[in-house]
Simulated assay, not measured.
Amino acid sequence: MDITFIDETSEVSQDKITEIDELLQFAADYLKIPEDTEMSVTFMDNKGIQVINRDYRGKDAPTDVISFALEEDGEGEVPIIFDEELVMPRNLGDIMISTERAAEQADEYGHSFDRELGFLAVHGFLHINGYDHMTAEEEKEMFGLQKEILDAYGLKR
């Protein structure tokens, strides 16, 4: 899977980006996502993610992770239909993670920053693959799968 990483904070080390890449590659294999799939991950601060949260979700507060699934039609959107002969890689969408909020939550929950950042990356990844937690049944399925992936990868609380 081809993942584009953007660090708007200029504070995320290349080692940390490599760790998240490896975790998301593992999650992609776990879900049997085709290798020619694309997505992006943007690391930002609370101020940056607050703007996204306000503009796209109507919530004027920082959050930990926001996902934009490209394969999901929004309300009032017309689906894009491509010529069947045109071969294009599948693009899942974009994940934005507040590293500032991740650090705050790691402290709140009493686990490492690495664990929290990995949790948020997998959480966003599941969202752009069609999982959600709007109902109790959806939450049970998504959070169960999230835990399975993180445990199988070895990133436990």
Rank of each mutant, 00 (worst) to 15 (best):
D151F: 08
M96T: 15
I66S: 03
G124Y: 00
Y153P: 01
A27V: 06
Y131T: 06
G93K: 00
M142W: 11
G76R: 01
I66R: 04
V51Q: 12
I95W: 04
G154P: 11
A28H: 02
E71P: 12
A69Y: 07
L23M: 00
R57L: 15
Y56M: 05
P89K: 02
Y56I: 03
G144F: 09
V12I: 04
G93M: 00
F26Q: 08
V41R: 04
E77W: 10
T99S: 07
T63R: 05
H133V: 08
R101Q: 11
E11I: 05
I149R: 03
P79M: 05
L23D: 00
E100N: 08
K59P: 09
D73N: 09
F26L: 06
G76N: 04
L92M: 05
R90K: 14
R101T: 12
D15I: 10
L117K: 08
S10M: 13
A69C: 05
S10Y: 13
A61D: 15
M44Q: 06
M142N: 10
Q14G: 15
D7L: 03
V122A: 00
F43C: 01
S40H: 05
F143H: 10
Q25Y: 15
E19H: 14
M142I: 10
I52C: 09
I95A: 04
E72A: 11
F82W: 11
L126A: 01
N53I: 01
A61C: 15
M44H: 03
E77F: 10
R57P: 13
T37R: 05
I33M: 08
V87D: 15
G130F: 01
L24S: 06
F82H: 14
D7R: 06
P89N: 01
A61E: 13
E72W: 14
M1K: 08
D21H: 07
S13Y: 06
L24H: 03
I3R: 03
Q25C: 14
F43Y: 02
D21V: 10
